[in-house]
C-alpha cells in the first residue's frame, strides 16, 4: 500500500499538469504588484561601468540612445531606457534618440523621451536632446550613419530637417558621439557591437532582456562594450545608482503610478523562488520514482 502511494505521488508529481505551475506563477506575479515588498538591490560591475562612463561625460558630450525594442519587452527595457535618459539629462549631457526596432521602436522612443524630458523643463528640444525617430534597414542604416547621420535621418521624428536643429549641426556621424547605448530586445544590440564598435570604435553599452544577457557577457569581458544592463535586475541596479547620486529624481521613483525596475524586482524574486521550488519538487519526485523502480 505504501509502495502504491509512493509510486502514485512520484508519478503524479512528475506528470504534474502544467496549468498548476501557470496558476502559481500568475499568483506569484500579481501579489507583489498589489503588495510591494521593497527588497534592496546590490550593484554589479557591468552596471556600475555604464553609470561611471556617463558620469565622466561633460555637458558638451553627446550620447546616442537607440531604442531597439518594442512594446513586448517594455517592462524590461523601459525602466532602463528611462534611467539612462534621466541620468544623461540630469547631467546635462546631450542626447540623440533613435529607433531601429521595426514594430513599436519609434513609439517607445517617443514615449520614454517625452516622459523623461518633461522632468527637466529647462532643457530644450533640438538643443539638448533630439528624437530622430525610426528607420528601417537595420545594419545598412547603422553603417550609413558612420558616414553621415543626416543621410539616414534627413529629418527628425517631428519632420524638422536635421540642419535646423542646433544639436544636430554639431553631430555629423559616430565621431561626434561619445557613447552609444542600445536598449535591445534582439540582435540589434549585437550589431551595435559587431559593426559600430568594431568598425568605428565608438564605445557601446547594451541594455538587454535578461534572457539575452548571458551572450553579452562575452562582449563585455573582451571590452567590446563598456557596460551592460541585464534585464530588470540590471535596470534596478542602475536606478539604485541614479537615486544615490541624484536625489532630485526620487519623486519619480516614489510615484506608485510609474512602474520602475526596483519594484519589478519583487515580482522577479517571487517568480524565481517559485521556479526553484518546482525544480526541487520535480527532483524529489524523480528520486522517489527512481528508488521505487530500483526496489521493484
Amino acid at each position: 500500500m505504501a509502495k502504491i502511494k509512493e509510486g502514485g505521488l512520484s508519478t503524479a508529481l512528475q506528470q504534474l499538469d502544467r496549468r498548476w505551475i501557470f496558476l502559481l506563477v500568475a499568483v506569484g506575479a500579481i501579489l507583489p504588484i498589489l503588495f510591494p515588498i521593497g527588497l534592496s538591490v546590490t550593484v554589479t560591475p557591468p552596471v556600475r561601468d555604464l553609470f561611471d562612463r556617463i558620469e565622466s561625460l561633460t555637458p558638451d558630450d553627446v550620447v546616442m540612445v537607440s531604442f531597439d525594442y518594442g512594446p513586448t519587452t517594455k517592462p524590461e527595457n523601459g525602466p532602463m531606457a528611462a534611467a539612462v535618459l534621466r541620468h544623461c539629462l540630469a547631467r546635462r549631457v546631450k542626447v540623440v534618440v533613435l529607433a531601429l526596432f521595426p514594430i513599436g521602436g519609434g513609439a517607445m522612443a517617443t514615449e520614454e523621451l517625452d516622459r523623461v524630458a518633461a522632468e527637466f523643463p529647462t532643457l530644450r528640444y533640438g538643443t539638448d536632446f533630439v528624437n530622430l525617430g525610426y528607420k528601417d534597414g537595420g545594419q545598412a542604416s547603422m553603417k550609413q550613419m558612420g558616414e553621415d547621420i543626416a543621410r539616414v535621418f534627413p529629418s527628425d521624428s517631428r519632420g524638422t530637417p536635421l540642419s535646423r536643429l542646433p544639436l544636430m549641426q554639431k553631430v555629423r556621424n559616430y565621431r561626434d558621439i561619445k557613447l552609444v547605448v542600445s536598449l535591445a530586445t534582439g540582435i540589434i544590440g549585437d550589431w551595435w557591437i559587431n559593426l559600430i564598435n568594431a568598425q568605428f570604435g565608438t564605445p557601446v553599452a547594451v541594455g538587454c532582456t535578461a534572457v539575452s544577457a548571458p551572450k553579452f557577457y562575452a562582449y563585455y569581458d573582451s571590452h567590446q562594450m563598456i557596460g551592460l544592463l541585464g534585464g530588470l535586475k540590471g535596470a534596478s541596479e542602475y536606478e539604485r545608482l541614479l537615486l544615490d547620486a541624484y536625489p532630485q529624481v526620487k519623486p519619480v521613483y516614489d510615484n506608485p503610478m510609474i512602474f520602475n525596475a526596483m519594484r519589478g524586482m519583487d515580482v522577479q524574486t517571487i517568480i524565481h523562488a517559485i521556479i526553484i521550488g518546482f525544480i526541487i519538487i520535480g527532483n524529489v519526485a524523480y528520486f522517489l520514482g527512481r528508488s521505487r523502480a530500483a526496489r521493484v
Binding site: 505551475i21 501557470f22 512594446p71 513586448t72
Partner: peptide, 19 residues
C-alpha cells in the same frame, strides 16, 4: 497590451520547462 501579454507568457513557459 497584446504584445506585452505574449511576451509575458515566457515567465509561465520558463517555469514549466525548468520543472
Amino acid at each position: 497590451p497584446l504584445q506585452a501579454t505574449m511576451f509575458s507568457l515566457l515567465a509561465f513557459y520558463v517555469a514549466s520547462a525548468a520543472f
